[in-house]
Amino acid sequence: MARELPTGGVAAGVVPRPLPPGVRRRRFLQAVANHTVLVALSAMFLMPFVFVVLTALMTDRQALSAAIWPRPFRWSNFLEVFRAIDLVRYTWNTVQVAVGATVGVVVSCVPVAYALSRLRWRGRQAAFVVVLSTLMLPFQVTVVPLYIIFVRFGWIPSLKPLIVPMFFGDAFSIFLLRQFFLTIPEELTDAARVDGASELQIMTRVVVPLAKPAIAAVALFQFLYSWNDLFAPLLFVGGDPNLWTLSIGLAQFRTMTQVDWNLMMAASVLFMLPVIVLFFLAQRVFVEGVTLTGVKG
C-alpha cells in the first residue's frame, strides 16, 4: 500500500488556471490514474460484502465447494436462518439493550455535561479531570466487582446490567457533549438567565436545541456501541440463550446445531443490514461525530 504514496502525493487539489494542452493531458492522465487507484481500493473494500452476500444465497453444499456464484439462488436461506437460530429473540434483546442504553446515556449525560460546561461551581475542574481519567480506565478493571455486584442484585442473567448503568452517565459521552457545549456562546445562556429562566429551562430550551448535532452523535455512537458489543453481553447474559444479543448469537453460531456457512453468512447479512441502513440515513451526523472526537478532542 505504502508504495503508492510517492506517485500519488499531490495531496491537495491545485488552484485552476489556464493550462497549456500538454499539462492538461497530463492532468487528465493523472485523474484517470487517481480514479483507477480509488476504484481498485473501493473494490477491495466492497469485496468481502459481495462474497458474504453471494455465499448467503448458496445451498449448504455449494457453500462448502469452490463455487463463487450461487446456483441456484437460494433466497429461502434468509427464512431458513430464522429457524436455525432464534434470530427474532436476539434482535429483540439487542433492540432493548441498544435503545435502553441510548436513552440512558442521553438523559444522564446532558445534565452532567451542562454542569461541567455552563455552571460555575467549586470542584468543576476536578470533576472534569475525573471524567477524563475514567476514559482511560479499561473496562476490565471494574468488570469483576461489577459482575459480583450484579450477581448480588440478582441481575445475572438479565439485560439490566447492560442498560441500567447507562442511566448513570458515561465518560466518553459526557466528554463529547461538554466539548460541544463549550462552543455555544455564553451570551445566549446569560441572556436567558437575565430573563429569569431556571438552569433546567436554559438547558432544555437553549442549550439542547443548539447542541442537537452533538446529542445526535452521542446517541448514535451509544446505539452502535450497544448494538455491536460482545464483551459485556457475553459476561452478563452469556449464560442464558434466551437473553442473547445478536452479537452473541452470531459468535456462537458455529458451535450450535444445524448450521453451515450459507446460513451463517445470511445471519451476518441480516445483522449488518440495519446498521448500514442507519449509516446511510445518518451519514452526516456520523462523520461529523467521528471528526468531532478526533480533531477537536
Binding site: 459480583i148 450477581v151 434466551n242
Partner: peptide, 16 residues
Amino acid sequence: GNRDDEAIVAAIRAGN
C-alpha cells in the same frame, strides 16, 4: 431451561 453452569454458579453465589 437455558441455565448453564455460569448462571447456576451466579445464582448460588447470590443466595437464591
